[in-house]
């Protein structure tokens, strides 16, 4: 019974490390799209996806370190990402982020 527990713990650690490696590769590929992206909507989508990958990395670090303190960090990254995406979308649509006077 204890050997089964140890095996599953090792399996979780190995899978978490492998997932971190693959997510890091994905972030590098997305950085190429941010820097050399042909149009601005490409860059917006790539930045959004980089944020999602950062949330996944924080969750995997929380799994590896056996802690719950990273939950606030994941929520914080999500909120900042939401506001950044709204700002980029509004800039692409209107050309101005904070209107002087609506209506």
């Amino acid at each position: 019974m204890s050997t089964l527990l140890e095996t599953s713990q090792q399996l979780i650690q190995i899978v978490a490390v492998l997932c971190m490696v693959v997510i890091s590769l994905s972030i590098i590929l997305l950085l190429y799209r941010v820097i050399f992206g042909p149009t601005n909507p490409d860059r917006a989508i790539a930045l959004d996806t980089i944020g999602i990958n950062l949330m996944a990395l924080a969750g995997l670090v929380a799994v590896l370190l056996l802690t719950t303190k990273f939950n606030d960090v994941i929520l914080l990254i999500g909120i900042l990402l939401f506001i950044g995406t709204i700002a980029i979308a509004k800039f692409i649509e209107k050309g101005v982020i904070i209107d002087r006077d609506l209506d």
Binding site: I83, I97, R100, L102
Partner: peptide, 18 residues
């Protein structure tokens, strides 16, 4: 930073004057 993010979201949605 979170408080200023909330105020900034209100500025983006409702405009500067409101």
């Amino acid at each position: 930073l979170m408080t200023s993010a909330a105020i900034l979201l209100m500025y983006m949605a409702y405009g500067n004057k409101a």
